[in-house]
């Protein structure tokens, strides 16, 4: 019922400290978890493509384990089961943020490794041969020939994962992390209203994801270089057709 919409409460929610801090926590968690997941995922992807059978087996098992279990269960596991296995995890140093970081990075790495693998596989194997013919080392071929091309393929799906991960951080409210959704449920409890607190959270998520999409678009442009024909067409000419002095 829009008739009972409380504009004042809506603005109060939008501008409140807990929402702002919750959104920052969600963004921070997304950023650190995605960075960690990119590193782990890269090595898992290399593992899946490895010549050694045991490395392939390990990488495959990793992907299997973390894609086959729900993220919520992984969060509960890190927060509530780890301390029973090793009591050190019950200490106050182990914050909800760290637990969410660990759980979400491990989870996300499994998905990212598949994206990175598809990026790596999109590069024609002939290029590796060509690099070897030029006397480049294996690492050098990976860094200078394969990676720059693989990144272009991987950016759109990684952007997708970034957005998914941002929304997954709301799950961490169950392990007492004060993020954006926690702020809205607490306001719901205090004001006995759903509409305004949840609508304010919705606005926050929309704004954050819009910014992320803009960043993704910029990154895509950055990694689209001359080999893309469309990119070459829109690129400004090196010299103005008519010199400014001539006018």
């Amino acid at each position: 019922m829009l008739a009972s919409f409380d504009t004042h409460l809506f603005w109060q929610a939008l501008s409140s400290g807990p929402y702002w801090r919750g959104a920052l926590t969600a963004l921070e968690l997304t950023a650190v978890a995605l960075s960690t997941a990119l590193i782990i995922g890269f090595f898992v992807a290399l593992g899946v493509l490895s010549q050694r059978r045991w490395v392939r087996g390990f990488a495959w098992s990793y992907n299997w384990l973390f894609r086959a279990t729900p993220t919520l269960l992984q969060l509960y596991f890190v927060w509530d089961v780890l301390p029973t296995l090793w009591h050190g995890f019950a200490g106050s140093w182990f914050t909800p943020f760290m637990a969410a970081w660990i759980a979400l990075s491990l989870n996300e790495a499994a998905y990212l490794s598949e994206i990175i693998r598809s990026g790596l596989m999109s590069v024609d194997p002939g290029q590796e041969l060509a690099g070897r013919a030029l006397g480049m080392s294996h690492r050098s071929i990976l860094r200078r020939v394969i990676m720059p091309q693989a990144i272009r393929i991987a950016i759109p799906p990684i952007g997708n994962e970034f957005i998914t991960l941002l929304k997954l951080t709301s799950l961490a409210s169950i392990i007492s992390l004060h993020e954006l959704l926690t702020a809205s449920t607490q306001l719901t409890a205090a004001k006995f209203e759903y509409t305004e607190p949840l609508l304010a959270a919705l606005v926050y998520y929309l704004v954050i994801v819009s910014v992320l999409m803009a960043i993704q678009a910029r990154l895509e442009r950055k990694f689209t270089w001359t080999s893309n024909r469309r990119g070459r067409r829109v690129a400004p000419p090196a010299m103005p057709a008519v010199s400014h002095d001539a006018r």
Binding site: D80, P83, T84, G91, S92, F94, S173, I174, S176
Partner: peptide, 20 residues
């Protein structure tokens, strides 16, 4: 002090049993 909020009362009590 550090305040941790959980979905259920029993979840909160479980944190004391866990030693956290």
């Amino acid at each position: 002090f550090t305040l941790q909020s959980y979905p259920g009362d029993n979840d909160a009590v479980a944190q004391v049993l866990l030693g956290r």
